[in-house]
Protein backbone atom coordinates (compact mmCIF):
# COMPACT_ATOMS: atom_id res chain seq x y z
CA UNK A 1 0.00 0.00 0.00
CA UNK A 2 1.82 3.08 -1.27
CA UNK A 3 1.12 6.70 -0.42
CA UNK A 4 1.53 9.49 -2.99
CA UNK A 5 2.74 13.01 -2.22
CA UNK A 6 2.99 15.96 -4.62
CA UNK A 7 6.40 17.49 -3.88
CA UNK A 8 8.36 19.12 -6.72
CA UNK A 9 6.92 22.05 -8.66
CA UNK A 10 7.55 22.36 -12.43
CA UNK A 11 10.32 24.95 -12.13
CA UNK A 12 12.39 22.83 -9.73
CA UNK A 13 12.07 19.87 -12.05
CA UNK A 14 12.92 21.78 -15.23
CA UNK A 15 15.83 23.44 -13.44
CA UNK A 16 17.23 20.10 -12.29
CA UNK A 17 17.22 18.41 -15.69
CA UNK A 18 18.37 21.52 -17.58
CA UNK A 19 21.32 21.69 -15.23
CA UNK A 20 22.08 18.03 -15.91
CA UNK A 21 22.08 18.65 -19.66
CA UNK A 22 24.05 21.89 -19.42
CA UNK A 23 26.70 20.53 -17.08
CA UNK A 24 27.15 17.36 -19.12
CA UNK A 25 27.48 19.39 -22.31
CA UNK A 26 30.07 21.76 -20.88
CA UNK A 27 32.07 19.23 -18.91
CA UNK A 28 32.11 16.35 -21.36
CA UNK A 29 30.94 17.29 -24.85
CA UNK A 30 31.63 20.87 -25.92
CA UNK A 31 35.06 22.17 -26.86
CA UNK A 32 36.41 24.12 -23.87
CA UNK A 33 37.93 26.75 -26.13
CA UNK A 34 34.79 27.25 -28.18
CA UNK A 35 32.11 29.92 -28.03
CA UNK A 36 29.33 27.40 -27.28
CA UNK A 37 31.05 26.43 -24.03
CA UNK A 38 30.89 30.06 -22.89
CA UNK A 39 27.23 30.55 -23.83
CA UNK A 40 26.16 27.34 -22.11
CA UNK A 41 28.18 28.44 -19.08
CA UNK A 42 26.28 31.71 -18.87
CA UNK A 43 22.98 29.88 -19.31
CA UNK A 44 23.88 27.58 -16.42
CA UNK A 45 24.72 30.53 -14.16
CA UNK A 46 21.38 32.13 -15.10
CA UNK A 47 19.60 28.89 -14.16
CA UNK A 48 21.38 28.76 -10.82
CA UNK A 49 20.53 32.39 -10.04
CA UNK A 50 16.89 31.68 -10.90
CA UNK A 51 16.90 28.64 -8.60
CA UNK A 52 18.37 30.68 -5.78
CA UNK A 53 15.62 33.28 -6.15
CA UNK A 54 13.01 30.52 -6.31
CA UNK A 55 14.50 29.19 -3.08
CA UNK A 56 13.18 32.29 -1.37
CA UNK A 57 9.83 32.89 -3.10
CA UNK A 58 8.81 29.50 -4.47
CA UNK A 59 6.51 26.85 -2.97
CA UNK A 60 7.43 25.14 0.28
CA UNK A 61 9.43 22.20 -1.03
CA UNK A 62 11.55 24.58 -3.13
CA UNK A 63 12.46 26.90 -0.28
CA UNK A 64 15.91 26.71 1.27
CA UNK A 65 14.36 27.42 4.66
CA UNK A 66 12.35 24.20 4.34
CA UNK A 67 15.31 21.89 3.81
CA UNK A 68 18.38 23.59 5.27
CA UNK A 69 19.45 20.96 7.80
CA UNK A 70 20.90 21.33 11.29
CA UNK A 71 23.55 19.03 12.72
CA UNK A 72 21.04 16.88 14.57
CA UNK A 73 19.09 16.15 11.39
CA UNK A 74 22.21 15.24 9.43
CA UNK A 75 23.44 12.87 12.11
CA UNK A 76 19.90 11.54 12.49
CA UNK A 77 19.79 10.54 8.85
CA UNK A 78 23.22 8.92 8.97
CA UNK A 79 22.16 7.08 12.15
CA UNK A 80 19.08 5.76 10.37
CA UNK A 81 21.29 4.50 7.57
CA UNK A 82 23.71 2.92 10.06
CA UNK A 83 20.90 1.10 11.90
CA UNK A 84 19.12 0.28 8.64
CA UNK A 85 15.93 2.04 9.69
CA UNK A 86 13.70 3.12 6.82
CA UNK A 87 12.82 6.78 6.97
CA UNK A 88 12.29 9.29 4.20
CA UNK A 89 11.80 13.04 3.85
CA UNK A 90 9.02 14.54 1.77
CA UNK A 91 11.36 17.26 0.48
CA UNK A 92 15.15 17.06 0.25
CA UNK A 93 16.73 14.89 2.94
CA UNK A 94 19.42 16.50 5.17
CA UNK A 95 22.30 14.88 3.27
CA UNK A 96 20.56 15.60 -0.03
CA UNK A 97 20.26 19.24 0.94
CA UNK A 98 23.98 19.45 1.76
CA UNK A 99 24.78 17.98 -1.65
CA UNK A 100 22.51 20.52 -3.33
CA UNK A 101 24.20 23.45 -1.59
CA UNK A 102 27.57 21.94 -2.53
CA UNK A 103 26.63 21.62 -6.20
CA UNK A 104 25.04 25.08 -6.41
CA UNK A 105 28.08 26.67 -4.77
CA UNK A 106 30.57 24.75 -6.90
CA UNK A 107 28.80 25.59 -10.16
CA UNK A 108 28.64 29.26 -9.22
CA UNK A 109 32.39 29.26 -8.62
CA UNK A 110 32.91 27.48 -11.93
CA UNK A 111 30.76 30.06 -13.72
CA UNK A 112 32.37 33.08 -12.07
CA UNK A 113 35.93 31.89 -12.67
CA UNK A 114 34.94 31.00 -16.22
CA UNK A 115 33.74 34.55 -16.80
CA UNK A 116 36.87 35.97 -15.20
CA UNK A 117 38.97 34.05 -17.70
CA UNK A 118 37.40 36.12 -20.49
CA UNK A 119 38.29 39.46 -18.94
CA UNK A 120 41.46 41.51 -19.53
CA UNK A 121 42.13 41.76 -15.83
CA UNK A 122 42.32 37.97 -15.36
CA UNK A 123 43.44 36.92 -18.86
CA UNK A 124 46.08 34.20 -18.53
CA UNK A 125 46.10 34.46 -14.74
CA UNK A 126 46.83 30.91 -13.66
CA UNK A 127 44.98 30.66 -10.37
CA UNK A 128 41.69 31.54 -12.07
CA UNK A 129 42.01 28.77 -14.61
CA UNK A 130 43.20 26.36 -11.93
CA UNK A 131 40.27 27.21 -9.67
CA UNK A 132 37.93 26.67 -12.63
CA UNK A 133 39.44 23.24 -13.29
CA UNK A 134 39.60 22.19 -9.64
CA UNK A 135 35.93 22.97 -9.09
CA UNK A 136 34.93 21.26 -12.32
CA UNK A 137 36.72 18.15 -11.05
CA UNK A 138 35.06 18.53 -7.66
CA UNK A 139 31.64 19.02 -9.28
CA UNK A 140 32.12 15.91 -11.39
CA UNK A 141 32.99 13.85 -8.32
CA UNK A 142 30.03 15.38 -6.49
CA UNK A 143 27.70 14.46 -9.34
CA UNK A 144 28.93 10.85 -9.32
CA UNK A 145 28.40 10.69 -5.54
CA UNK A 146 24.99 12.34 -5.95
CA UNK A 147 23.84 9.77 -8.50
CA UNK A 148 25.13 6.90 -6.37
CA UNK A 149 23.43 8.30 -3.28
CA UNK A 150 20.11 8.81 -5.06
CA UNK A 151 20.16 5.23 -6.34
CA UNK A 152 21.15 3.78 -2.95
CA UNK A 153 18.60 5.85 -1.04
CA UNK A 154 15.87 4.92 -3.51
CA UNK A 155 16.64 1.23 -3.05
CA UNK A 156 16.97 1.57 0.72
CA UNK A 157 13.71 3.46 1.35
CA UNK A 158 11.62 2.13 -1.52
CA UNK A 159 10.93 5.66 -2.83
CA UNK A 160 11.82 6.17 -6.51
CA UNK A 161 13.63 9.50 -6.23
CA UNK A 162 14.64 10.03 -9.89
CA UNK A 163 11.07 9.40 -10.99
CA UNK A 164 9.84 11.86 -8.38
CA UNK A 165 12.09 14.52 -9.87
CA UNK A 166 10.43 13.91 -13.25
CA UNK A 167 6.77 13.61 -12.23
CA UNK A 168 6.94 15.72 -9.08
CA UNK A 169 5.25 12.97 -7.05
CA UNK A 170 6.90 10.84 -4.36
CA UNK A 171 5.40 7.38 -3.87
CA UNK A 172 6.20 6.10 -0.38
CA UNK A 173 5.74 2.50 0.85
CA UNK A 174 3.24 2.23 3.72
CA UNK A 175 5.56 1.33 6.61
CA UNK A 176 8.32 3.84 5.92
CA UNK A 177 8.71 6.57 8.57
CA UNK A 178 7.96 10.04 7.24
CA UNK A 179 10.13 12.85 8.56
CA UNK A 180 8.84 16.46 8.51
Amino acid sequence: MMKKFKIWDPFVRIFHWSLVIGFTANALILDEEGQAHIWVGYAIVALIVARILWGFVGPRSARFAAFTPNRKQVIGQISDIATRRRSTHLGHSPLGALMIFNIIGSILIIGVTGYMMTTNAFWGVEWVEEAHEIFVGWAEISVVLHIAAVVIESLRTGVNLPRAMVTGVKTVPADVILKE
Binding site: T83, R84, S87, D175, I177
Partner: peptide
Protein backbone atom coordinates in the same frame (compact mmCIF):
# COMPACT_ATOMS: atom_id res chain seq x y z
CA UNK B 1 24.23 -9.67 14.42
CA UNK B 2 23.63 -7.57 11.29
CA UNK B 3 23.12 -3.82 11.80
CA UNK B 4 19.34 -4.29 11.49
CA UNK B 5 19.35 -7.18 13.97
CA UNK B 6 21.41 -5.13 16.45
CA UNK B 7 18.80 -2.40 16.32
CA UNK B 8 15.88 -4.81 16.73
CA UNK B 9 17.66 -6.62 19.57
CA UNK B 10 18.27 -3.33 21.36
CA UNK B 11 14.58 -2.43 21.18
CA UNK B 12 13.47 -5.89 22.27
CA UNK B 13 15.71 -5.83 25.33
CA UNK B 14 14.05 -2.50 26.22
CA UNK B 15 10.75 -4.36 26.26
CA UNK B 16 9.13 -3.01 23.11
CA UNK B 17 6.46 -4.93 21.25
CA UNK B 18 6.86 -6.06 17.66
CA UNK B 19 4.38 -3.40 16.55
CA UNK B 20 6.31 -0.66 18.31
CA UNK B 21 9.62 -1.83 16.88
CA UNK B 22 8.14 -1.95 13.38
CA UNK B 23 6.96 1.65 13.81
CA UNK B 24 10.37 2.82 14.97
CA UNK B 25 12.17 1.12 12.11
CA UNK B 26 9.81 1.84 9.27
CA UNK B 27 9.44 -1.91 8.61
CA UNK B 28 6.58 -4.34 8.36
Amino acid sequence: LTPAEQDVAGFTVKGMSITEIAGLRGSA
